[in-house]
Amino acid sequence: MSIYELVAAWFSDPGNWTGPGGIPARFAEHTAYSAAAMAVAAAIAVPLGLATGHTGRGGLLAVGLANAARALPTIGVMFLVVLAMGIGLVPVQVALVVLAVPPILVNTHEGVRAVDPGLRDAAAGMGMRGPQVLLRLELPVALPMVLLGLRTAAVQVVSTATIAAYVGVGGLGRFIFDGQNRQEFGMVAGGSLLVALMAVLVLVFFWLLRRLAVSPGLRAREAAVRE
């Protein structure tokens, strides 16, 4: 059988679409792991990035640490945390959070730093105080960068959650590693295609979020800059 036939056969086998090891269940697991890690990472990194960006304090340190973290290999971080904490879902989640924090932090910080000082002056002139400036001006203006950071992190998390299957948890990576062990290439390729599909869905999700959440005035300005 050719590779295409193997993959097509795997996808069309109804047995692969039901039960706890079926495609919908694995897809849901993968989404749940990724969403949980992203929620924790965002809860840590967005406020921190807003704070360092707004006050200008500790920004260099935060960005330096985050950039250094980018040079670390994801599988090393994942395996080290799992080895230290034992096999299970919690260590995997910890590793995913560790990998997701840096891009969110850096982009949030840079986004707030890049806010036009004229806008800040105008906000002060309108009588806004520190927290108001942050929430009503800096956050909305920095939102495209914050979303870019979240998207970068989400793509990374979805990818690393695949590797997490190697240490025995669920998710779409199961198809890849189980297929590899059983020498079933249709399953390996099918799992790989599903992971790729999920990554594209993440891009679509953030594209929609950007359309919905970013102020139309800002989008018009960006379009004008691009012309």
Binding site: V158, T162, Q180, G191, A196, L203
Partner: peptide
């Protein structure tokens, strides 16, 4: 955006 592990396999 496509994870490297998927492309490798």
């Amino acid at each position: 955006a496509v994870p490297s592990i998927a492309l490798f396999f």
